[in-house]
Design a protein around this nucleic acid. Sequence first.
DNA 1: CTCACACGTGGAAGCGCTTCCACCACAAGG
DNA 2: CCTTGTGGTGGAAGCGCTTCCACGTGTGAG
Lengths: 331, 331
Amino acid sequence: MVEVARNREPTLADVARRAGVSVATASRALSVRGPASASARHRVATAARELGYVPNPVARALATRTGTRLAVAVAGQTAHVLNDPYAARVLAATATAAAATRDVGVSLHWLPLHDPAELGRLTENRDIAGVIVVNPTTPALATVPRSARDRVASIGIGTRDVPSFDVDNATATTTMIEHLLATGRRRIAMITGPEWLPCTQRALTAYHRTLAESGTPPRLAPGNFTAAHGESAATTIMTRWPDTDAIFALGDLSALGALAALRGMGVDVPGDVALAGFDDIAYAALSHPSLTTTTNPVEAIAAGATTALLDHHTSTPQTFYPSTLILRDST
Amino acid sequence: MVEVARNREPTLADVARRAGVSVATASRALSVRGPASASARHRVATAARELGYVPNPVARALATRTGTRLAVAVAGQTAHVLNDPYAARVLAATATAAAATRDVGVSLHWLPLHDPAELGRLTENRDIAGVIVVNPTTPALATVPRSARDRVASIGIGTRDVPSFDVDNATATTTMIEHLLATGRRRIAMITGPEWLPCTQRALTAYHRTLAESGTPPRLAPGNFTAAHGESAATTIMTRWPDTDAIFALGDLSALGALAALRGMGVDVPGDVALAGFDDIAYAALSHPSLTTTTNPVEAIAAGATTALLDHHTSTPQTFYPSTLILRDST
DNA sequence: CTCACACGTGGAAGCGCTTCCACCACAAGG
DNA sequence: CCTTGTGGTGGAAGCGCTTCCACGTGTGAG
């Protein structure tokens, strides 16, 4: 009498019984790699379908000693990062990708800059299948034990054995600077992100190279992607180089902060100074003037990192995703 | 010879051995409720600390037949909700709370409006410990089997057996309208959210009551919290009631859209029309003029829902979190 | 001085999977 | 005809925890 009790989800044992094979064979037939005959595969698949069998990820995780969730670890100062829309967006995108690919959850963690070992600890957690680390430093990556390297993917800098996924902001920066040059701007300043970030470094290199080609000297102000820093950076720039005619901020929030500062100083945008941002956040289209910016394909990046992690693609060292220029009124 | 093999995390068996008790007792001593003597409790706790024992959530979940993650289910049209900063913020807050309280992950799901049963299906998933449903409809909540009701918490409307957590937007609306009245505005329009949302209904009731007390007739325009709808709603309002002197939008994005529309029509804010929003998003402080708004304590709400779910607090039917008025230049 | 009844405790049986290992055919080589 | 493989299979032992159950103990009441 093969009857599944009411109120109980079918298990692999039910499937095996119905298919007339052992649990071991059923397990192998359902997994792609295991040795199993074609006929067994077929019968098990049919039985599973008829029963509406759904594998229990918890049992599988326990048996294979892997985790049931992906950790998203964001580097930065906790207080600052807590209301970071970028982190929230990465998390949402990862959660969506993880739920779509496999049935795994996502948890969010902060990586204090002063304690690089926290990342290593996270990778040792028993029930974490993999870690997507956002903007890690090289020392932090170095704390990951060699054996756990295949359970880490980076959005930011990578290493030889940690694949990295990021927006191609070198090209994006070049494109943006060339756009500003094409519209007649010659005294172009840049508000950067934290200098320890590799994406800041890549953008800086592109900025210097593009300016050098057109023979214009650089004007730099440090920032940290927040609106407040954008404001003070714009003030600094206009005080130090009053004839500046364009500002490119590596982050829309900084750009919008700069916009407020410029308005406060009576500087017309784009009349006196052209202004451009990075990320294309929702508000960029709503400001006055609306902000020229370049996209950050976070969803694609997070999906890439997620599948790399879940499929153990160790063969992809670095992937850069293209950004597209969004022209609006501020330039 | 009590020696833990290298390269292996200590398990409960290791702790039990070191404490000189059985695994069963160790388990009971570690759990808060189980029967265990004070001395056993103490010895097990000490052994656990010395060994650096961390319970394996996967094994626990398998044994107790509970899940290892919390699902955050957002009601709405997928395309719209995918880049909804509010959903991302709820997810991030939930993930933070879940990681802090227990060691569980979070996954993100969309609930299409046309298929209320999706929520019921989610609650039946074997490895989901609980579902936090954002802005559910009553029919959707009704699809949750009675036995699973204690595994659901709602941000939005609740039922007798599903606790709900939300911002007290009735009071917030009253406060905002009273603020507008106090600054001399008398022809106050409101841009609402989708009418099927309970929070829209609560705000509407408060709006009508407050206006009725001051003897001013209502002026309503429907919206859906997006900037685009805010723009068209503002246009509609100013066309239909040209003497409007204040607009309150139930969402900052709508308010900012309205601001753009008003600027386009040559209406001065706050000179001709005072403008107020809801949520206090990051950009509200950066617009020109900066936006008067009222906070949405998403982090506290998500933390409340998370702990309610993980601790099976079924005794709290409804909790409303206070919003605070943020006065800026737009009113 | 019994009997009942707590209360703590250890043994052991799961939870639902994966995977090691032994086994059995059967085909191919000597 | 016997050995040596080979691919498919089932039994069973885990993974690390919780919890049922039975079994002593020490206490109070009868």
